[in-house]
Design a protein around this nucleic acid. Structure first.
Length: 567
RNA sequence: GCGCUCGUAGCUCAGCUGGAUAGAGCAAGGGAUUUCUAAUCCCUGGGUCACAGGUUCGAGUCCUGUCGAGCGCGCCA
């Protein structure tokens, strides 16, 4: 089913062809910013007039005259410096809504050419706590993967676990010297974290400890059985902890291949890079130079013979290409690593890989003091505690506002609202801006927040619970009130917005749309009573409510956010 | 020093790849409710889009420079 913008563009292109005007890709039809200028507009006349040295308004007039608006709306108007403005007649909107209502995809078409895409995100480090720093990657990556999949792409999500890094030198050293087996049984993650911190602290004070940590790492990477056994136990314990968090968040992965999965490939891969002349030896290390990117080398083998994550990332890329032959590999990793990814992609190009590589970068989470978010004691905030606090705070709100709800239901709602608030706070913001974490803002029922959107959904569902007989979508509807028409047109935009999210990887485009949609529903809700209406008016309003609830539920689902039926 | 990402209302942020008089929420003030969940809606005030040039019919958006912030720059990830 074509979107409204596509339908209008088709009519526009026909008109341009009839006038023998070459428009290239300038014949874009977009929604207007201001309803006074109609519903959709195109600036194609101004673009063409420039190239042809014609008067833009006159050309716009000739184009507008040629556009066949039969069944859509009145003749387009020429306005301002040469815009062509389109208005949709209520009957067209009504017919389109009935059609969308019969479509389980709500007017979102699948892409014509599905691609195979690897999306790497979350990527926490084993034996280190998952903290707020990981939440953006997890939530953003999950949303992008969901949307890509919904659009028909073949998506493989991969949690690239940091299970082979230098932190293991410290963990193993501490394991051997300060392990408390009882604590490990009772609170495995807390004990692992304590061990890491202990070794980290001591190695900062004592260079000898640091050296011993390094040696433990070398032993592990050379296959020492004792260290290997310790490592395996750490991995098992950490993965169990991560799995609990992912389950709470509703995030699933197709693969969870850690860095260690590529370890055996590293030595030969570096030799190959050297043989091809991509890498060279410098100061005893194997490095790749690309001065067009940076003077900083990309180090694929340290002078002590060890390998860092740069090497692993090249090997991972090769593995993915071999195994899935993907069209794209998307890395959802923080903005500070931009140089690393530029260099990695540069190496991939020099190795001849044609796959579309994208670093989907994002900014940091700040505390209300505008500095990196920390606990009172200056450490990063453990993710689990943060999520539990979100659920806790949401629970208090729900019980406060709706004390009549049974306990188990209000607990379930608290989870949906609390987690939704955290996720939505991330996703409603442009991914590159550092954002300020604020409980009161994300849990507010006013403004661009998850609870506001969830409440709009709940209000729409409440109507159906009060219906005497089951709702049957009508074959035709009538949109008489301005609030009905405004809401209807906004619902129709869903099919335009969802695909646009992948254009620049901006889930906030979808989030902002859903906010506008909810706001328009609220206006409709205030102005147009449903249950007390009669006949065709009632049927039309019920259809709007039904479509609204399905659209906002689907939209939030694409962001990884659930909706409650009551709250 | 070099590089990356930014700088929009008092605060937190949008701004749909260059379009019309730059928009929301919070905060401030005023109004609407015997409710389909007021957990909402409506109205009012609030701006040199950091600054200076340039590109063009048109710049918050693109290019150059300046100032300011955050981050990154060989053996951490």
């Amino acid at each position: 089913m074509p979107t409204v913008a596509q339908t209008l563009q088709e009519r526009l292109l026909n008109a341009l062809a009839a006038l023998e005007l070459e428009s290239g890709d300038s014949a874009q039809v977009v929604p207007t910013a201001d309803p006074r200028n109609g519903d959709y507009q195109t600036s194609v006349a101004m673009v063409l007039a420039k190239a042809r040295r014609e008067n833009p308004r006159a050309l716009a007039g000739r184009i507008a005259e040629k556009i066949d608006m039969a069944g859509i709306g009145p003749a387009p108007e020429v306005a301002g410096p040469g815009f062509v403005n389109f208005r949709l007649e209520p009957e067209f909107v009504a017919q389109k809504l009935v059609a969308v209502s019969e479509d389980p995809r709500l007017g979102v078409e699948k892409v014509a050419n599905p691609r195979t895409l690897i999306v790497e995100f979350s990527s926490p480090n084993i034996a280190k706590p998952m903290h707020v720093g990981h939440i953006r990657s997890t939530i953003l990556g999950d949303a992008i993967a969901r949307i890509a999949r919904f659009l028909g792409h073949q998506v493989v999500t991969d949690n690239h676990l940091g299970d082979w890094g230098t932190q293991f030198g410290k963990v193993i050293y501490a394991w051997k010297h300060f392990r408390d087996e009882a604590a490990l049984e009772a609170h495995p993650m807390a004990e692992l974290v304590r061990l890491y911190r202990e070794a980290d602290l001591q190695s900062k004070r004592d260079a000898g400890v640091l050296e011993q940590c390094r040696l433990e790492l070398v032993r592990l990477q050379k296959g020492d059985p004792e260290n290997r056994a310790i490592w395996e136990r750490c991995v098992t314990l950490s993965r169990r902890e991560f799995a609990a968090i992912y389950k709470l968040l509703g995030v699933e992965f197709d693969e969870q291949l850690g860095e260690s999965a590529y370890d055996v490939e590293l030595p030969s891969m570096v030799e190959r890079l050297l043989a091809k002349g991509v890498a060279e030896i410098s100061e005893g290390a194997a490095v790749v130079f690309d001065n067009e990117i940076s003077e900083t080398p990309f180090m694929v083998r340290k002078s002590d013979g060890g390998f860092g994550y740069a090497t692993t990332d090249v090997a991972t890329l090769e593995y993915r290409v071999k195994r899935w032959n993907p069209d794209g590999i998307w890395y959802v990793v923080g903005a500070p690593q931009q140089l690393h990814f530029k260099q990695l992609f540069g190496v991939a190009r020099r190795l001849g890989y044609k796959v579309d590589l994208e670093h989907i970068a994002f900014g940091s989470i700040l505390g209300e003091d505008r500095k990196l978010m920390r606990t009172r004691s200056g450490e990063s905030v453990p993710l689990r505690e943060l999520l539990e606090e979100a659920i806790d705070r949401a629970g208090k709100l729900v019980r406060d506002k709706n004390p009549a709800l049974p306990d188990d239901e209000s607990g379930e709602i608290a989870k949906i609202v609390g987690l939704g608030a955290v996720k939505y706070a991330e996703l409603s913001q442009h991914r590159l801006t550092d954002y300020v974490f604020s409980w009161s803002k994300m849990l507010s029922f006013q403004g661009n927040t998850a609870p506001y959107l969830q409440n709009a959904y709940v209000r729409s569902r409440a109507i159906f619970r009060r219906l005497d007989s089951p709702f049957r979508p009508p074959d035709r509807i009538l949109l008489a009130e301005p609030a009905e028409q405004t809401l209807g047109k906004e619902i129709l935009r869903f099919g335009e917005v969802v695909p646009a999210v992948l254009d620049g990887f901006k889930p906030n485009v979808l989030a902002n749309y859903l906010y506008e949609l909810a706001a328009k529903y609220h206006v409709f809700y205030e102005q147009c009573p449903v249950l007390t209406a009669e006949g065709e008016t009632k049927a039309s309003r019920l259809l709007l409510c039904d479509l609204f609830s399905r659209t906002i539920k689907t939209g939030l689902m694409l962001l990884g956010i659930e909706v409650p039926e009551r709250m």
